[in-house]
Amino acid sequence: MALLGIRGLTKDFGGIRAVNGLDLDVDAGQIISVIGPNGAGKTTLFNLITGMAPVDAGEIALDGHDIVGLRPSQILGLGIARTFQNVRLFPEMTVRENVMVARHCRTRSGMLTAILRLPSFRREEAQTRRRAEDALAFFGARLVGWRLETPARSLSYANRRRLEIARAIASDPRLLLLDEPTAGMNPQETQELTGLIHKLRDRTGIAIVLIEHDMRVVKGISERVVVLDYGQKIADGTYREVAGNERVIEAYLGRRATQA
């Protein structure tokens, strides 16, 4: 059984069908790229999976259990974490706090234990801290050390992207959705991140779905490529298969030529 199963997923935005009867399976440990022209419904797909936008029709199942209609926080608790296209951090919170927030669903101490500073609270707090720092250490030296205490807004753009990924990782997801993780990064940084994504999968075995525009990244990273156009899946296969697919070429070149 697939880790994530999507059947007939549909979403309308005031007459525009952003996602149209989409079927998609994600197996554990897979790295999948979702590509498609602008407005193809990629980000909407992420919003639907994570519960940030209500589903109009269709099913989304994690481990065979329906997750449609759950709150985003519940879905994160079940193991689907995401990042955002236009990096959305908690800008005034420190780097460490940003990541610690993601441990919220894995911890349970309430207000009373916090006020009384019970041993269980201290233990959990220390653990949260450690796990957050572990997640940040994933990016080597970039986000740890003195940077832990700086507010997220003072980070460079690339570091913000990294912080967002670290925050998602810290929630111990089984499925990680990355929305254009390399946008705004230079080639060197992009390459580094690609390597890290591979490493992350190899180390933890989580499935990773990423939206990506940079075809070199897509080629280098993905075991499977899914192409969306007008909210529909028009191709699904290895990079080579998809790259040769006529509909894909048409979808991209037909409109891309005028855009780019």
Partner: peptide, 17 residues
């Protein structure tokens, strides 16, 4: 931390658990 996250961005806080 949950309050702070909510103050900064409610929908992201929800998405982060």
């Amino acid at each position: 931390r949950a309050w702070a996250a909510m103050r900064e961005d409610e929908s992201v806080a929800e998405a982060m658990g």
